[in-house]
Design a protein around this nucleic acid. Structure first.
Lengths: 210, 210
DNA sequence: ACGTGTGAATTAGTTCACAGCT
DNA sequence: AGCTGTGAACTAATTCACACGT
């Protein structure tokens, strides 16, 4: 069955996790896997994996399982990472530097094409292959290069303003590292990364001994 | 009603988000809010917020709403961040440096107490107030200081090994930045941060024009 | 004999809607 | 008049379990 019905967000959210695990298996030289094996690796039920995949098609072979390279290709196509997406980064602090140097984007479908900051001390300095640009140049850059994805790594106090600028410039998806909820039009996709949120989720379950 | 029934994980996962938003409001000088206002800020229904809070007690006043400082205190107590948790960091690369310098942990209940790496070039070097220690010293340090939380910021190839070492040393909660799923005993809490996963979730929804 | 794909059954999560307090 | 807290109603997600193809 093709993806005619709307796929639940929660299912879409698991696909990249499946893809990552499959790529690990491929790197191990594995050719075939099963929903059961994949589920065991990820702590997910095999039924869940089969059901999730069934929203998009039928990729396995009964009695055998899934050919890893094939399933990887299908997932890459479904997630649209069978191409490379340009991204910009705003914020050239410690986190910005780490993101700028991160080698993990390229093999997974993403490429950083520009870094912006508003600090005159930083503008013009190199980070890896890039030079920090004035955030004022962001709108023109985004329009000229048709960039759709931005990563925001500025302080909380500046994040909303930067987000507004991005949206105005035509950015359609934001990965926000600032610890605030962004107010953006519904059409804009936003994902949040905030380590303290994850840590606080865990401390709830940690005993009081600490 | 007190937290007698088991609280769903998904509810626990939202509490830190509520807390963060309330702290923003408090910083704005606000004293009172309502489930409706909070929900609008976060894109969540007011009923959801009231229901979530009802797992833990009744914190609001009918006709009025919630006193922000009080609700913050309740959430901090519920999440056990009304104290400071010691954390260690393994991996002193770009990301490790960013995490080591991050000012956002302290105000939210966390304190980095040690940084480890296995690279002889890095061991002994300072990062902010810390000195990078040999990962060999990790077990003794964790035991001596009763550290319960570790952040893993090493390459994927080393992450499982580091996680095993942490678990063996007595770590109970792991925030893993390496792009692999960790195999750990069920009693260990693990949270994952992987920007590519978030990006791939968004590209699913982005049109094909890019 | 094995593992997929999938309706059906079950469980979990969200929203409704309103009594009750301020 | 306004907003909480919460059972009840509803919707969503997960798991079950098995027919079917290899």
């Amino acid at each position: 069955m093709a993806a005619v019905q709307k796929v639940p967000d929660i299912v879409v959210g698991r696909l990249p996790v499946y893809l990552r695990a499959l790529q690990v298996m491929a790197a191990e030289g594995r050719e075939i896997t099963s929903s059961q094996e994949l589920g065991e690796r990820l702590g997910i039920s095999s039924a869940q994996i089969r059901k999730d995949l069934s929203y998009f098609g039928t990729f396995g072979k009964q009695g055998t399982g899934y050919r890893i390279p094939d399933l990887i290709e299908h997932l890459r196509r479904i997630l649209k990472v069978d191409r490379t997406w340009d991204m910009i980064l705003i914020g050239a602090g410690n986190l910005g530097h780490a993101l700028a140097q991160y080698q993990g984007f390229t093999p997974r479908g993403f490429r950083l094409v520009a870094i912006f900051d508003n600090d005159p001390e930083k503008i013009g300095r190199p980070i890896g292959p890039h030079v920090i640009q004035d955030v004022q140049e962001l709108p023109e850059f985004v329009r000229a290069h048709r960039v759709q994805i931005a990563m925001i790594a500025v302080p909380a106090s500046a994040a909303q303003q930067v987000a507004d600028l991005c949206v105005e410039a035509g950015i359609r998806a934001i990965l926000n590292y600032a610890p605030i909820h962004l107010k953006v039009p519904k059409r804009i996709l936003v994902q949040y990364i905030d380590p303290a949120i994850h840590l606080q989720q865990m401390t709830y379950y940690l005993g009081n001994e600490g």
